[in-house]
């Protein structure tokens, strides 16, 4: 599997990344770099990681997602994880993982809402 299979779409100033169902470790690492490069190239303010297709979120994958979110934060962006399946949410919690401080939403729609609200608040401030 290569990162060519990972779709990165820009919606306004937000990057929408769809994570494939069962990526290997190399793909997960490559994804991180691809996303960070895209943040800069597209002058993005936010990142949505759509994990609706992901059936297995093990500790390596979860740690890489949490790390990516911290890296994006260093670049001034905000990350939202969208679409976690119920079975993945149960397993992730029982495995003892946390995704740190990353926000998560039920789906991409709500992630867009959340990020746009964050943008408004920033303008008001």
């Amino acid at each position: 599997m290569t990162t060519d299979m990972i779709s990165v779409v820009k919606v306004r100033d937000i990057l929408l990344v769809t994570i494939p169902a069962d990526p290997d470790d190399g793909t997960v690492c490559a994804l991180q770099e691809k996303v960070l490069q895209a943040m800069m190239r597209y002058d993005a303010r936010g990142l949505i990681l759509d994990i609706a297709m992901v059936e297995t979120l093990d500790s390596f994958f979860a740690r890489t997602l949490a790390e990516t979110s911290r890296m994006v934060a260093l670049m001034g962006g905000r990350t939202v994880i969208a679409g976690m399946r119920p079975s993945v949410a149960i397993t992730t919690t029982q495995l003892g993982m946390t995704l740190g401080t990353i926000a998560s939403t039920l789906n991409v729609d709500r992630a867009l809402d959340l990020l746009s609200r964050f943008g408004e608040r920033r303008i008001l401030e």
Binding site: E55, T56, L57
Partner: peptide, 26 residues
Amino acid sequence: REMATQMGFGITDVTRIVTAVSELAR
């Protein structure tokens, strides 16, 4: 995943099994 699904485990148990497999294989 295929094996647990064929045996009749529910989706949450399948996910638990596959996740444990991923941890131990790694």
